[in-house]
Structure formats: structure tokens, C-alpha cells
Amino acid sequence: MKYLLLKHYRGGPDPVSAYEPMDRWTPEEVDAHVGYMNDFADRLKETGEYVDSQALAPGGAFVRSDGEGRPPVTDGPFAETKDLIAGWMIIDVDSWDRAVELAGELSAAPGPGGEPIREWLEVRPFLTGSASTTE
């Protein structure tokens, strides 16, 4: 079963620990955080549970059609209040419980003072592409 672990720049439930943006940490704290993320992905590659991970730049906009013959309408760049996705990791695991366990670990990446940042991650199951063979 594949799950999407979604990381947000902002949005979601209220954060449990208030920490400053990363550019205000010390360089060592930044290194420790980035290193933790890399190690986490490496570990999942070894257990055969890793699928993909990507990061998104904070720029961009919402776009919709405005009808034939007219240019698309854009809404953005995103206002400060909007929910903003920062990136994701896709994992392929045996159960929802395992997905939650891994998301918990990823959320504990170290922040200022080496304390876990405990950020909220959104965990979403993929719908599979083929129908179940047992009816």
C-alpha cells in the first residue's frame, strides 16, 4: 500500500512547538536537520519501503480555465494565510499503522537545540489503479 507523507510550509493543525524559520537556526542545526531527512530516506530504501520524495519551491499560483479563447486565470502567489505544500515522500508499506509510525519518525526531525520539531505531516493513502480481484 502506498502512502503520501505531505509536508506543509503552513496550514494544517496548530503547531505543537513554535520554532523559528530555518534560516534563523545555526548552520549545525540546519546540517543536522537535512542529515536526518537524508538518513530517513536512506533507511527506507534499505527496508524496501521508499518510493519517491520531492520538494516544492514556495512560489507558484492557483490556475483555472476562464473559458475557450480566453487566457487562464491565476490566483497567486499564495497569500500568507493559505495552506502551502512544501514537499512529499511516497512510501510503500504493509499497513496504515506502519505509515503512521514512519510519519511520526519523519516529524521528529531535529530543529533548534537538537529538539524534535514535531511538525504535522499529512498522511494520505493512494487509491490503487486496478480493482481488487476478490469480489
Binding site: D23, W25, T26, P27, V30
Partner: peptide, 9 residues
């Protein structure tokens, strides 16, 4: 990000 952190100190 690391450069920002470095010069802030």
C-alpha cells in the same frame, strides 16, 4: 539557508 544561518550569528 545554511549561509543565512551562518551570517546571522
Amino acid at each position: 539557508t545554511r549561509e543565512a544561518a551562518r551570517v546571522r550569528r
